[in-house]
Amino acid sequence: MNKKIQIAAISGAILFSIFVLTSSDNETSIPLPKPNSYSENDSVMILAENLDKPRAIAVYDNRIFVTEKGGTIRVIENDQLLESPLATFRTPNVFDGGLLGIAVHPNFSNNNFLYVFLTYEENGNLWNKVLRITEENNKLKDVEIIIDKIPGSSFYNGGFLKFGPDGKLYVGTGTVSDDSHLPQDINSLAGKILRLNDDGTIPSDNPFTNSPVYSLGHRHTQGMTWDDQNNLYVAEFGPEKNDEINLIKSGKNYGWPEQQCSGSDDFENAILCYDPSIEPGGILFYSGDKINFESKFILASMRASNLYQVDFEEGLSSQKSILSGNGRIRDVVEGPDGSIYVITSNTDGKGFPDRLDDRLLRILK
């Protein structure tokens, strides 16, 4: 699984580039599609349009919660986008910060808790915090701070959060800048995977005493998922190359900024490395039986404008496109019925939006 894998790019116009995925065993090429060639059919359904810089999705029963970078939580209920946001937060005007990740509490049916990751400005400095929201009838009822003073940045906040199979809240944070060594500082919350109880307290079995840090040495986390053996996988951006998929182990160091992908016995090696970057987004281990995938891991990609299935054991030679022609794809989650939900990211400043971007899509089969 740790064999060296690379992606080489064939030069050409951005919209019509071809990424060539190579391994030591074979080669395959996947064309980069034109963005915004949307077509609703019996396999893909458009649930919402004109979302403004959407960042993350959380699904509970018949409701889908979507964060928008500018500070709003939108609700799609029974396949209809509600006119009024659930909540609106003030966010700074920075390129890659704002209202980012969102997670639903495992006991949401009883407590109505949602968790969000928010960038804010204080005395000229950028910070991030995780909020616990109590909602009632798709409206904000109460807000509590779960963890605060996560170092912020205009570009590298991470911001992904999910509940694990152990019932703990996992939070992916980013480095402040590419020349920052805070990801290697165990006393800093930057460049880490954090593990918290649902009230923000520190679990007694965390790897570092009295610390929320679960793993360190991360650059810019974008997605996380657990497989059926409760192994945690995280996708993160590299600096124009060396995007990583990492198998996260308690207390381990993943190298940033000292290492990219692999090379040192002092750090954990990435299980997949993308060179050049495909800008991985959300990641999902598909546990349903509604859709017959060859590989259970599903990966959203922004720069490569695809939703992929990939077998981490077999490497990039197993990677195949599930969905293309929709431009940048930022997040992917599984619904309770086995459907897959994705959001596009064409209004994020890097895409080619049309008048109806961005969209929430459901993959039905």
Rank of each mutant, 00 (worst) to 15 (best):
E136T: 07
I30A: 12
T28G: 13
D354F: 05
L216Y: 07
E144Y: 01
G288M: 08
K290V: 05
L51M: 07
T201N: 13
C273D: 07
S204I: 06
P207Q: 02
F113C: 11
F285E: 08
L361W: 14
L364E: 14
Y156G: 07
T209E: 11
A13L: 09
S204E: 15
E314P: 01
Q184F: 08
E27Y: 15
V143M: 12
R63N: 15
I73T: 12
N50G: 03
V171Q: 04
P353C: 10
S177K: 12
V94Q: 03
E122T: 01
D337H: 09
E49Q: 10
I145K: 15
R328F: 00
G159E: 05
P280I: 01
G101K: 06
A235V: 08
I150M: 03
A190L: 02
S39Q: 15
M1E: 01
P54Y: 05
I150W: 02
A304V: 00
D166P: 00
L189E: 07
D205R: 02
I30S: 11
F65N: 10
K53Q: 15
T344V: 08
V116E: 08
N269S: 10
P54L: 09
T173E: 06
N26G: 11
S321W: 02
L82C: 07
A56D: 14
I278K: 01
S215T: 02
Q260R: 11
K350C: 07
P54D: 13
I271S: 07
D337I: 04
P276G: 14
P85G: 01
S17W: 00
N157V: 00
K252P: 00
Q222I: 02
Q80Y: 08
I18P: 13
I363S: 11
L299A: 08
W256A: 00
H218W: 04
N292E: 12
I46Q: 14
G98E: 01
F312E: 02
Y308H: 14
M302Y: 01
S177E: 12
I73L: 10
S317E: 15
T347D: 14
K4A: 09
I147C: 14
E144M: 05
N346M: 10
L169K: 06
I283A: 04
A8F: 12
G349I: 06
A235C: 11
Q222R: 06
F163M: 09
L307F: 02
D266K: 15
E135K: 12
V44S: 03
D25L: 13
S37C: 15
R359K: 13
G159Y: 03
N62V: 08
D178E: 13
I245P: 11
L99T: 04
L114Q: 04
P239T: 09
N123F: 13
K129Q: 10
N206V: 03
L361G: 03
T175F: 00
S301Q: 09
V66P: 14
T67W: 04
M45F: 09
N111G: 10
V75Q: 07
N253I: 00
S11D: 15
F208S: 00
I30F: 09
